[in-house]
Simulated assay, not measured.
Amino acid sequence: MRKSTITLAAAAQELRRGRESGMSTAEYAVGTIAACAFAALLLAVVKSGAVEGLVTTVITTALSVSL
């Protein structure tokens, strides 16, 4: 009786492993797509006129300060 219980438990564990084998790959794919979408959004914001003008002003002010 004990041998069949061990075999059944091992089979159940193997089934669980098999169902989740591609799970981490899918999670990486979703994470990569989300990171690319966030990078595209950030690039669009940084290239907008208001942010570009603000960054230019900050850099110009920082370079014109005499020490």
Rank of each mutant, 00 (worst) to 15 (best):
R2N: 07
R2M: 09
S4E: 11
S4I: 06
T5P: 01
T5K: 14
T5Y: 10
I6W: 04
I6F: 05
T7S: 08
T7E: 08
T7D: 05
A9M: 04
A11C: 09
A12M: 03
E14R: 03
E14G: 02
E14S: 02
E14W: 00
L15W: 07
L15T: 08
G18M: 06
G18Q: 08
G18A: 10
G18D: 08
R19N: 10
G22H: 07
G22N: 07
G22T: 07
M23L: 14
M23W: 10
S24I: 06
S24R: 10
E27V: 03
E27Y: 01
E27G: 00
Y28V: 12
V30Q: 13
V30C: 06
G31N: 15
G31T: 09
G31Y: 02
G31R: 08
T32N: 12
T32E: 11
A34L: 13
A35P: 01
C36N: 11
C36E: 13
A37R: 00
A37W: 00
A39G: 07
L41Y: 15
L41N: 08
L41W: 14
L42K: 13
L42N: 13
L42F: 15
A44N: 12
V46N: 04
V46E: 05
K47L: 14
K47M: 13
S48G: 15
S48V: 01
S48Y: 05
S48K: 01
G49H: 07
G49S: 12
A50G: 11
V51C: 05
V51L: 05
E52Q: 06
E52P: 00
V58S: 09
V58Y: 10
V58A: 10
I59F: 04
I59Y: 01
T61I: 09
A62C: 13
A62D: 03
L63N: 03
S64T: 15
V65L: 08
S66H: 09
